[in-house]
Nucleic acid binder design. Structure first.
Lengths: 337, 337
DNA sequence: CTCCTGGACTTAAAGGTTTTCGGAAACGTA
DNA sequence: TACGTTTCCGAAAACCTTTAAGTCCAGGAG
């Protein structure tokens, strides 16, 4: 470990100039002679000088740091958003201060206080689901953007995936393949994601004038429920030729159960999942056609808008970002037109 | 958004004292009269005063912030370590500055410089595999600990899971169940994890005087490889009664293929996985007996030792942390003794 | 009465950087 | 020579907090 960190003072004395001149030379300001600048830069390099961000931030009032507040970063969805945000920030000179509140409002308040004390320039709040969450923006001295889980307050800036549109897109894909007896299996109704996806499902069917096969089956977001739902559905509605599942876990279970019942996927029943959770979607047999919510893009977009908000150019409201349908063998096997 | 942030100066004037007195009152120092302290605290509350951590850090030289440098946080293993570390820090008043180098050495250097410029008190480096990685600790003014992926330099502080011991534990479990024809399917040999687990496997068998069934099959860490290996193995060594897989993905594929071949798990073939990746290990049928590397504990331990190192009490060397065998139905079904 | 002690409070310095403003030198022009 | 202009550099303030050192006063001891 190096003994002592060099300050701009050390650089200045080594270069034989004042600290003001050293500062100007290091920051590329104009009124300094080229030869002098050289000397200063050389001195800085020799001492491996790193400007103290604390002192700089203290003076400028900007720390070039943002807080990332997640309710449940162990969750499946927080991570990509986090990566996207870190990506957008890292490209510049921003840094990300990570806090996990674990769904505890007290802890969340605690973290917000700590972040403000560190003078972050802004805050990104990542939800654990797309359910709207209480706003934290009131009386905060810095801008806040919400990613994945929107704020309840429409005056805040939120970014969410377009679940309704994506579900419709998935159903239209099935319709284009000629399927007409399409069922829907999804997660618990207290998830807005489940309700939104069902709404997109219904809309697309209604637009095409096609009736839903059976009733929507609501369960939990698990493979087990997918299997169970498949068994019930194949019993009650044996003539179904496609199913739209609310998650890849459900779809994976569904596919498994369908195959065990001796029906082929996709020839007899086409299956569409949701999330593009690769460990499931690419490893099931056949690989799952599924919706990718583009969460990294969402995180990156949220971060970029936080920049804008820091510069005073906020764009309030809930912004929905498009998803993407990833087509794999569970709806259109290779070699089949 | 609040208009202006209060400083200790504002608090002092509102309370009618000097800033020194205000500081002492706020920090619980002694030589302040109780009544005065009351006044200061009330003033601070009214202005919702938050001490400026930058100014404090500038003075004390301690930022109470650590950098978390990950090579690949999208990876399966970085996340729990990260959570464990964040947990250990969050309990106190530490904050975590997150950086993802994406496996790029240039970017890593860039991030290290940025972190040092921000005057972090220490660094945690999270590897993407247990393969030793180049040390970054030389000439750094702050302590560094390595988690999951150890440093190549034995003078550094590293924490890794005990893959050898865990593999032996898994095999001993199979031996205790009376299995004697045990095979091993694992990932690529350039992963130290694969080599370590194979070593533990061999040690345990040797100690029991039992011969390995077939040769170790090295492939990739995927479900597909697990299936493929199962097919080869059932063909070549039809009499095997157990298999130790190098990952849950491999084990999940293996279980699937075994069942498709009409063999029962665990009655005919017992299967042990590795990682306890719950989406796989609890959702396969039967659920997988598997090794949990206790990565959150590992992350927490690394963080705690970083604290110690910051206080000058480093404990150099590679520390291996015990893993845990999670027993589920793939080795001992419910209702069977 | 004087001196000392200790409590309660204030002053001022320190920490590292940026920036404004003023100063000095060099040079050209009248 | 006197003066104005340009170019380069330095002194000092500002950011906010903590803390060492110093001031002031009341009260007790001698």
């Amino acid at each position: 470990m190096a003994v002592k960190r060099a300050t701009i003072n050390d650089v200045a004395s080594l270069a034989g100039v004042s600290i003001a001149t050293a500062s100007k030379a290091l920051n590329g300001r104009q009124d300094v002679r080229a030869a002098t600048r050289e000397r200063v830069l050389a001195a800085a390099a020799e001492l491996s000088f790193q400007p103290n961000a604390l002192a700089r931030g203290l003076l400028s009032g900007q720390t070039r740091t943002v807080g990332l507040l997640t309710s449940d970063s162990v969750g499946r969805f927080g991570i990509p958003v986090l990566l996207g945000a870190e990506d957008a920030f890292g490209a510049g000179e921003m840094a990300v201060l990570l806090c996990d509140a674990r769904g505890d409002a007290i802890r969340e308040q605690h973290h917000i206080r700590a972040l403000l004390s560190r003078r972050v320039d802004g805050l990104i709040v990542v939800g654990e689901s797309t359910n709207p969450r209480p706003s934290i923006s009131k009386d905060l001295p810095v801008p806040v953007v919400y990613a994945y889980g929107p704020s309840e307050d429409p005056a805040d800036v939120s970014f969410v995936p377009d679940d309704v549109g994506a579900a419709a897109m998935a159903v239209n894909h099935l319709l284009a393949l000629g399927r007409r007896r399409i069922a829907h299996v999804t997660g618990p109704g207290h998830y807005k994601a489940a309700r939104d996806r069902e709404e997109g499902f219904r809309q697309a069917l209604a637009e095409a004038g096609v009736a839903q096969a059976g009733r929507t089956l609501s369960g939990v977001w698990s493979q087990r429920w997918g299997r169970h739902a498949a068994e019930m559905l194949l019993m009650a509605e044996p003539e179904i030729d496609a199913v739209f599942c609310g998650s890849d876990q459900i779809a994976a279970g569904f596919v498994e159960a369908v195959r065990e019942r001796g029906r082929r996927v996709p020839d007899d029943v086409a299956v569409v999942g949701y999330d593009n959770w690769e460990v499931l979607s690419t490893e099931t047999r056949p690989a799952l056609t599924t919706v990718d919510m583009n969460l990294e893009v969402l995180g990156r977009t949220a971060a970029q808008h936080l920049f804008a908000a820091i510069d005073g150019k906020a764009t309030p409201g809930v912004h929905t970002l498009p998803c993407q349908l990833v087509i794999r063998d569970s709806t259109s096997p290779p070699g089949v037109s």
